[in-house]
Amino acid sequence: MRQIVLDTETTGLSWEKGNRIVEIGCIELVERRPTGRHFHRYFNPGREMEPGAQEVTGLTLDFLRDKPRFESAVDELIEFIRGAELIIHNASFDVGFLDYELSLAGRQHGRVSDHASVLDTLAMARERYPGQRNSLDALCRRLGVDNGHRKLHGALLDAELLAEVYLGMTSGQGDLGLAASGEPEAAAAAATAARLAGTSTARVVRRASAAEEAAHAERLAKIAKRAGKLLWPGAGTSA
C-alpha cells in the first residue's frame, strides 16, 4: 500500500477569501515504511501573508517572492500523489486549499479526489481519544513523538511528525512482515497453498563432519561425567 503524508502552509485560514498555499510537504510510505522519497516546495502566493499565518510559519512575502507559483508544480505534485492514500491532519483544510489551487491552475487538473483517496488523522484521533486535545503537538506528546525541534510550523517537518503520529496511532495494523522479508504477497500465498495441499520440496541434509562428531562426543562425555548418565544414550553416534 502506498501512502503520502501531506501538509500545507498557507497565507491565511480561508481559501474562500483568496488565501493561497505557500508551502507543501509530502512524505512517501510504502507498506507503512518511509521510502525516503518526498515532495517539498515553497510558492510565491502573489499576496501578503496574514499576520497570524506569518507568526506560526515564520514565512514572509520577501522570502517567498522569488519562489515559483503553485501552478508550475501542479503536474509534478499530481504525479507524486497519484493512486496513493493521502494522510492529512484536518484534511478538509488542506484538501480545500489544494482543490482551490488546482482550479486556479486549470479545470483539466480536476480535484484531489480524482487522483488520490484521503485519510483524516484528526477524525481518527477524535474517535480514538474522545474529549482530549488532538492537535499535532498534543498527539506527539501522547504518543511519545519528539517534536522539540518544532518551533514554527513547516509543511515538511509537520508531515514527518504526522507520519510518526499516524504509525503510532495505527501500530498493530501493519502487514505481516512479508514486505520486509522481500517475499511478495503472491509468492507467500502460493507457498501457503502448496503446504496446505500437501506438496513438498526436496530438503538438503547436511551431515556432521568427523571433526564435528568427535567434538560432540567429547561434549557428551563431559556431560555424562557430571550428571552420571545421559538422557539420550547413543546420541553421539552417526545416524
Rank of each mutant, 00 (worst) to 15 (best):
M1L: 10
V5K: 01
L6D: 01
E9H: 07
W15H: 14
G18L: 10
N19V: 09
N19T: 05
R20F: 03
I21G: 00
V22R: 09
G25K: 01
I27C: 09
V30L: 15
R33T: 14
R33C: 11
T35F: 09
R37D: 12
R37N: 13
H38Q: 14
R41G: 02
R41D: 01
G46Q: 07
V56A: 00
T57K: 03
L59E: 01
T60I: 11
D66R: 14
D66L: 10
R69Y: 12
E71C: 12
A73V: 13
V74S: 02
E76F: 13
E76T: 12
E79P: 02
F80I: 11
I81H: 13
I81R: 11
G83W: 09
A84M: 05
E85Y: 03
I88R: 05
I88S: 01
H89C: 04
A91C: 06
A91E: 10
V95M: 03
F97V: 06
D99M: 07
E101W: 01
A105N: 03
Q108A: 11
Q108S: 09
G110F: 09
A116K: 02
S117Y: 06
V118D: 03
L119Q: 03
L119M: 07
D120V: 03
T121D: 03
T121A: 01
M124L: 13
A125I: 05
R126N: 04
E127F: 06
Q132M: 10
R133L: 05
L136Y: 02
D137E: 10
R141M: 08
L143I: 08
L143E: 07
H149S: 15
L152K: 15
H153G: 00
A159R: 02
L161I: 09
L162R: 05
S171C: 05
G174P: 02
D175R: 05
D175C: 05
G177Q: 02
L178A: 08
A179L: 10
A180K: 03
P184Q: 02
A186N: 10
A187Y: 08
A188D: 00
A190F: 11
A194R: 12
A194C: 07
R195N: 05
R195C: 04
A197D: 12
S200Y: 14
T201H: 14
R207G: 00
E212G: 03
A217K: 15
I223T: 10
K225A: 15
R226P: 06
G228F: 14
L230F: 14
W232C: 10
P233M: 12
G234Y: 13
